[in-house]
Simulated scan of single mutants.
Amino acid sequence: MFTDTHLSVNAHMFGLPPDALIVEQRTSEVTPFYEGTWMDGMGFLYRNAEGAVQRLAIWLDRSATAYEKFPFSVYFEGKALGALDAAGWTSTDGIAKVVPSSERDAGLLITLKGLLEVEISRDFEEELFTDPPVQFLNLAIKSFTQGPSVHGFVGQMFREGAVEERLAMGTLEGLLHREYVEGTDDEYEASDLVSADCSFDLFSCQVGKDDESGVGAARKLLTAPPLVRDTLVRCAGPRYGTFSCRM
């Protein structure tokens, strides 16, 4: 989702299994190409004060009942944290914090101090009624700090001029939507929820004199700007609205 020199965020996507029973399609707006793609896991990578990579993973238990208040599995550096109380959990370095959301029956507020604040919540698919119903994660980005080289299938939208670039790319025939994402799907695939090894990786690369783009050994981005390591942009916005960014 996001890849930058100081932060990487991954998502695990899933679709309907071949034997899924579709009871009802509840909206006429679903196109003939609609098969359903949802998210059930998020991975966060950052570096602590010593420069060591720290990994936080959140998984949704899709077999949980609608009444379970904590249908999540939370892992830090591969260790399960268990169900969280109202005070939540904070990493020993003081950077990562996970707190159950008071605004939702099943939600988590995740903060990486000075980097990112997001709320994830459990939701149920309403356009396709299946047996059992599809459960998935919703994501609300409250704020994040980005560098000028930020990328990823969400992160690239926050680079200066990125929206205008994508809007000018035109429409993919037959898919009934505009194409805003640079590259193909497989170029965004990582080997693990908390691994930064996709083709667009910026988090784990080394920036050298001969590589001012910040891509390192990873794929050369088509629109990568020069990397300015000390320039960060703080982005913030309403819970489900547009974002404003300032230097």
Rank of each mutant, 00 (worst) to 15 (best):
V30L: 15
T31C: 08
P32F: 06
F33Y: 12
E35Q: 15
E35H: 14
T37A: 11
W38M: 02
M42D: 04
M42V: 12
G43E: 00
G43M: 01
G43H: 00
F44E: 01
L45S: 07
Y46D: 00
R47D: 00
A49V: 12
A49F: 11
G51H: 03
Q54G: 00
Q54P: 00
A57I: 06
I58D: 01
S63I: 03
S63K: 14
S63Q: 15
S63R: 14
T65G: 15
A66M: 14
A66S: 15
A66W: 09
A66L: 14
K69I: 07
S73N: 10
V74F: 08
Y75L: 11
Y75Q: 10
Y75H: 10
F76L: 09
F76A: 01
G82M: 10
G82W: 07
D85V: 10
G88V: 01
W89C: 05
W89N: 02
W89Q: 05
D93I: 04
D93E: 12
D93L: 03
D93T: 10
V98W: 01
V99G: 07
V99A: 05
S102Q: 15
S102F: 11
S102T: 15
E103K: 13
G107K: 04
G107H: 04
L108G: 02
L108Y: 02
I110S: 00
L112S: 02
K113T: 13
L115T: 01
L115Q: 08
E117S: 12
R122Y: 01
R122V: 03
E125N: 05
E125D: 10
E126F: 08
E127D: 14
